[in-house]
């Protein structure tokens, strides 16, 4: 379903990703771990299509289509979702208006009908309830004044509504205490399905106790230096990234 081949990415003229290869099958959850500066966030932004991230080589095939040719909104319609490490605050735009605009844009692009206000409200409330998101939060401007936990729950709600087939979770655990992380992880786990694959990007192993991956990859200096089963995450936790790097060298 997702095939990253020899992906090279420059930011501001500096090469950050230096030939990434990664393959995800439907339903699989892969974790990408790596130290600060290894290129984790660059990978997630590149997959979502942020401007300023220049793909200088390689390809990202998603169900046979090259993602790098698509605008961010076209990628979303195709089924790609990025859960942001730091969700952007958007003053003046209520979460509800945003969710409805996004959902209907994606539905129309996928050839489905738009939801009217009544059907939309019913759907969003049902999904919000499962994530402990109140009506009050939905009425507030998007992410403005949300706590760390609220922001990540709002990201998870967006994912639940947009029903992507491939989701990138960028440091979803950052800024969360253990309890908040559990709520978010439960929300994410509820979205695991045989059709949906996920790329969980994280610095620490603790998130992977809650969202258990099928495969773990170690990213260092813009390359995947080691891949293995879920136990690899614990190995990193115990011995640190320095050892892995020297292994590779």
């Amino acid at each position: 379903m997702l095939e990253i081949k020899d992906l090279h990415v420059e930011v501001g003229g500096k090469e950050i990703l230096k030939g990434i290869n990664l393959s995800l099958k439907p339903g699989e959850v892969h974790a990408v771990m790596g130290p600060n500066g290894s290129g984790k966030s660059t990978l997630s932004y590149t997959l979502a299509g942020r401007s300023g991230y220049d793909v200088t080589g390689g390809s990202v095939l998603f169900n046979g289509k090259d993602l790098t040719d698509l605008e961010p909104n076209e990628r979303a319609a195709a089924g790609v979702f990025l859960a942001f490490q730091y969700p952007t605050e958007v003053p003046g735009v209520t979460t509800m208006t945003f969710l409805k605009t996004a959902l209907n844009a994606v539905r129309v692009a996928r050839g489905e009908d738009e939801l009217d206000a009544v059907r939309f409200l019913k759907l969003v409330r049902e999904k919000a309830k499962a994530l402990n998101i109140t009506d009050d939060m939905l009425k507030r401007p998007l992410n403005v004044g949300f706590s760390g936990g609220e922001k990540k729950r709002a990201e998870t709600l967006q994912m639940a509504l947009l029903e992507p087939t491939f989701a990138v979770l960028d440091e979803t655990d950052s800024g969360l205490d253990v309890d908040a992380m559990r709520v978010v992880a439960e929300g994410v786990n509820a979205l695991r399905s045989p059709e949906r694959s996920m790329l969980v990007i994280t610095h620490y192993q603790r998130l992977l106790d809650h969202i258990v991956p099928d495969h773990v990859h170690i990213l260092s200096d813009g390359k995947i230096v080691k891949s293995g089963p879920k136990e690899l995450a614990r190995e990193v936790e115990e011995s640190g990234y320095a050892d892995i790097k020297s292994d590779a060298a």
Binding site: E71, F84, T88, E89
Partner: peptide
């Protein structure tokens, strides 16, 4: 620009 990207990443055109 960050906010524009954020909204676009949710399927909303530019």
């Amino acid at each position: 620009q960050n906010a524009i990207f954020y909204l676009m990443s949710r399927g909303i055109d530019e």
